[in-house]
């Protein structure tokens, strides 16, 4: 039991931050992200014996998290409003060079899930096209197309909301 406890704690320390970040972009709501991360690690603890290879831990946790997120929609018990989606419509950026991380987070959150998820897997975990395809159960070509479209959409949103020369157009 002690060994299992140590394995679990090592898993928490190594992955909780990136797993939380992934959950954050999946749910776009910090408190929900925290909640499903808790559920994810609780499930990971219960089935820790099934994890034979520590190298596979990251993608194992991602799989559990994605299932937890899907379960959230099955329950349909949440009654929350996504503030970010409303906020971004009126948000303009004075200069692409002045975009800070919060602006970019809002931009990423605006992408629809099929484009957002592969992009996050690539940015956060450095996954290759094959690894993303395996994680999401898609073929590699689909993943590559989605990554391309995700970046194209970011560019498009930016060019729509970017006011050249700052305030002179606004």
């Amino acid at each position: 039991m002690k060994e299992k406890q140590q394995r679990y704690e090592a898993l928490v320390h190594a992955f909780h931050a990136d797993i939380y970040r992934y959950a954050y972009f999946l749910t776009r709501e910090a408190s929900i992200a925290e909640d499903i991360v808790q559920e994810t690690f609780l499930r990971a603890w219960r089935s820790l014996d099934k994890l034979k290879d520590e190298k596979a831990a990251k993608s194992w946790l991602i799989t559990i998290l994605r299932r937890e997120n899907a379960r959230r929609f099955e329950k349909k018990q949440l009654d929350t409003v996504n503030i970010d989606e409303h906020e971004i419509a009126d948000h303009t950026f004075e200069s692409q060079d002045n975009l800070d991380s919060a602006d970019l987070q809002r931009l990423i959150s605006k992408l629809s899930e099929p484009y957002r998820e592969p992009l996050i897997l690539q940015l956060l975990f450095g996954f290759s096209g094959e690894e993303i395809a395996q994680e999401l159960g898609l073929n590699k070509n689909t993943v590559m197309t989605r990554l391309f479209r995700a970046r194209s959409q970011l560019k498009e949103i930016l060019s729509k909301q970017y006011h050249p020369g700052g305030k002179q157009n606004g």
Binding site: V12, H13, H16, A17, Y20, R21, Y24, F25, A30, E34, V37, Q38, F41, S101, A102, L104, Q105, I108, L119, I120, L123, L124, L154
Partner: peptide, 17 residues
């Protein structure tokens, strides 16, 4: 973008897990 996705993690999250 890589920097931006590194959002702050709630304090004590590891401890609570």
């Amino acid at each position: 973008l890589k920097t931006a996705v590194n959002v702050d993690v709630p304090e004590n999250l590891a401890h609570r897990l």
